[in-house]
């Protein structure tokens, strides 16, 4: 019983750390990057002004990859503690 409680606690700690990491990346690409669109527009990427590119595509691509990344890591955490259900 206490071993189970311990596993639960460590599982939740790891889950929480992963979530915090994901939210930091989310904050950078959804708040910080759009904030500096004007400055980023000085640079060019694939022929686009970089700032425009990021809010039209770049950040969006990051969001998609971020969720697939998070699920991959979360599945590993769940399996590590035997809480993966499938």
């Amino acid at each position: 019983m206490s071993a189970d409680a311990d596993a639960r606690q460590r599982h939740w700690a790891k889950t929480r750390n992963l979530t915090v990491l994901v939210l930091i990346l989310w904050f950078i690409f959804s708040i910080i990057v759009p904030w500096f669109t004007k400055e980023l527009n000085e640079a060019t990427f694939l022929g686009f002004p970089l700032g425009f590119y990021m809010i039209a595509q770049g950040s969006l691509i990051v969001f998609v990859l971020l969720i697939f990344f998070q699920n991959w890591r979360q599945d590993a955490i769940d399996d590590e503690f035997g809480f993966g259900e499938e």
Partner: peptide, 18 residues
């Protein structure tokens, strides 16, 4: 207006995490 694009996709990170 591009804020709608960032908002309506970035929100899914919150849906998935939280």
């Amino acid at each position: 207006y591009m804020a709608f694009i960032v908002g309506w996709t970035g929100g899914y990170v919150l849906v998935n995490s939280l």
